[in-house]
Write a protein that binds this DNA or RNA. Structure first.
Lengths: 148, 148
DNA sequence: AATCAAACTTGATTCATTCAAGACACGCCG
DNA sequence: CGGCGTGTCTTGAATGAATCAAGTTTGATT
């Protein structure tokens, strides 16, 4: 079922259905933010053989078909996610790199409109919120010698 | 004059004043968006010797002193800029990588407030507008066979 | 079933960045 | 004003993510 509509989506995008592609999409649906490396590991854990190069090929193909999205917060390798076309943004922990999705409700319209366009044809506004996740806030507090 | 207040800023930040640091700051004021590599080249063009490692050390020191800022649009190496503490954002050309500053007037307040915080302590909202610069729009149009 | 381009594999290579260890020099102190 | 110590720089090697290149396999079309 899930498997079936992945196949369909691939075919609709003009892509051949292969074991590797099915597995990659499956992995990304189960693990919403994964590096190429993590995808490779998890695909192999499903019993599907895949080369490093194929991981990159598959991810690139899926990305340009619009089935997945690639983000790359500063200092981090590329991260892939299956949630797509819903204009959500990301919150990234400066300390541990944790990434959390944020649906852009408040700022949506405003954020999508740069105040000066300089002749650019803008097609996307990407918002990244930087900060500390709850766990790293606690660690940072205790490193400063604060109780608890 | 410009040179002088760079020295002062360095000292105020608790950093020693060296030829390399002065040159890096000067280069970044003249070239507002430069990679580590480009900084190295331009510093050397000023007649100041600097090793690759020192470029990274200096840039890191200046960054943590708050004198410069590092950004890293997806797919690009790190880019350094001297404009700092003025909450501006960036517009990046998908085709040629050109980066243009955008002062965030319209969306400012909204952009700084994620709609859900998930317990994160957010300290910065980074907005990147993706699109095509004027020159690349023309190239893309003619690649599609459109006249002119 | 035969075909053939698309997709995969293997292996080497690039680029940006970081690690490590030692040499140098800025700026303080006597 | 000259010596000292640590912060900064140099050299050289290493890492990690991603890409390039060439050859083999395989999905889907006839």
């Amino acid at each position: 079922m899930a498997e079936l509509d992945i196949s369909d989506q691939l075919r609709e995008a003009g892509l051949r259905v292969t074991r590797q592609r099915l597995a990659v999409v499956r992995v990304l649906r189960e693990h919403p933010h994964a590096t190429a490396d993590a995808v490779a590991e998890r695909v192999r854990a499903l019993g599907v053989t895949i080369s490093t190069q194929a991981v990159y090929d598959v991810l690139a193909a899926l990305e340009s078909a619009g089935l997945i999205r690639r983000i790359e917060p500063a200092g981090s390798p590329g991260i892939f996610e299956a949630r797509v076309h819903d204009n959500h943004h990301h919150m990234v922990c400066r300390r541990c790199g944790l990434i959390v999705d944020v649906s852009c409700v408040v700022g949506e319209a405003a954020c999508l409109t740069p105040s000066e366009s300089h002749g650019f044809a803008v097609d996307e506004a990407e918002v990244t919120f930087w900060g500390l996740c709850p766990a790293c806030q606690r660690i940072a507090a205790s490193e400063r010698g604060e109780p608890r």
